[in-house]
Design a protein around this nucleic acid. Structure first.
Length: 345
DNA sequence: GAAACTTGACCGGAGTC
DNA sequence: GACTCCGGTCAAGTTTC
């Protein structure tokens, strides 16, 4: 499959959406090209057989959902910024009903609910307007014994095949399993994260990068193995990731909320990646919340996007010219099966 | 009996008038 | 400013182990 040329929009978010749209269209093309193939390629996370057909279907669904998330994530993050009161006017201590502020937030889109390495306790379920499925609310099981403030929301999407949008709020401060090291041969993409000039690491490899910081960014190894990094990502990475090291999901410390734009024109979704060229090795992309110094290796297949902006600047719509204040960091991880998608908000 | 889950109620932010 | 809607959380009751 040919690799379409990159022609990004001026605005990074719009460009990201363009890339996602391109990927979705390419997935559709893939489905048309190989409509009849039934032979399994390998096994998915649930042990089921994966065919080209259902793989492409999953890819398409993932892109569709990712685009949807991108279009919505901004407003959610804006809510975080703008609705910040934590106490009632009478001074009584109150729980915060709204989205907790200053919490690192990111989202995952996965084909199935899988163990993410943390112990979660469900504390609520809510029917959401215009949503086909209810939203489930989970908090860390160590909320009370260790004061861990991490929460997550899980909501099934209406896509076919079924996908689950998992939104994480806050970082785990507990000492739980936290072993989210992605399994071998599962690839990732992480495009930036959280605040400020964070590092962005992108590579294609059949193995996860054990230590993206320690890894030599310039190293373009061969298909066997391994680490292939885009120069741009390398430059970013080198400039600011001295203390970075791989860390499992939820183990990252909460980054400061003062977010500066860090998505200024760095697009790492190479068309070579998105064309699903079978000759291309699976991808691994790692990034980090810069000041925290550790890449967000969450799980195979992640898109994440971190925003911190006023609501009015946060629509992620076409009206980007009016959104100069938009600060949106974006982590994108895509598994080799494109089955999981993360969006750090 | 402890832990986890379910679910209705409550609260506060946002939108509308 | 009042009202309404909606999402997030609480907490009592229920279920599971």
């Amino acid at each position: 499959m040919e690799s379409p040329s990159i022609c990004h929009d001026d605005h990074p978010i719009r460009a990201a959406l363009q890339e996602l749209n391109r990927g979705r269209e390419l997935a559709k093309q893939l489905m048309r090209v190989v409509p009849g193939r039934k032979q399994p390629l390998d096994f998915d996370d649930e042990g089921g057989l994966r065919t080209v057909k259902n793989l492409a279907t999953s890819i398409s669904a993932s892109f569709t959902e990712a685009i949807s998330i991108l279009n919505q994530s901004g407003s959610a993050a804006a809510d975080d910024e703008t609705s910040r009161s934590w106490a009632s006017p009478d001074g009584r201590a109150r729980h915060n009903n709204k989205r907790r502020k200053n919490l690192h937030t990111w989202a995952k889109l996965a084909p199935a609910l899988a163990d993410d390495g943390h112990a979660w306790r469900k504390y609520g379920q809510k029917d959401i307007l215009n949503a086909q499925y209810p939203r489930n609310y989970y908090r860390c099981s160590h909320k009370y014994d260790q004061g861990c403030q991490a929460t997550k929301q899980v909501q099934r999407t209406a896509t076919d095949p079924p996908m689950y949008r998992i939104i994480y709020y806050g970082d785990h401060t507990c000492r739980s399993l936290s072993n989210l090291k992605p399994p071998r041969h599962q690839s990732q993409i992480i495009l930036n994260s959280t605040d400020g000039p964070s590092s962005r690491l992108l590579s294609f490899c059949s193995n996860p990068i054990p230590n993206p910081v320690g890894a030599k960014p310039q190293s373009h190894e061969d298909d066997d193995g391994d680490l292939l990094l885009f120069p741009m990502a390398v430059a970013k990475h080198q400039s600011q990731s001295q203390s970075q090291k791989q860390r499992p999901l939820g183990a990252r410390p909460a980054p400061p909320l003062t977010t500066s734009s860090s998505f200024s024109g760095d697009y790492f979704l190479s068309p070579d990646v998105m064309t699903l060229d079978s000759s291309a090795p699976p991808m691994t992309v790692l990034s980090s919340a810069s000041d925290q110094g550790e890449p967000d290796v969450i799980s195979p297949g992640v898109y994440s996007c971190t925003t911190s902006t006023d609501r009015t600047h946060n629509t992620c719509t076409d009206d980007y010219d009016h959104h100069h204040a938009l600060d949106l960091d974006m982590d994108i991880m895509v598994g080799d099966d494109f089955g999981d998608v993360f969006l750090a908000i």
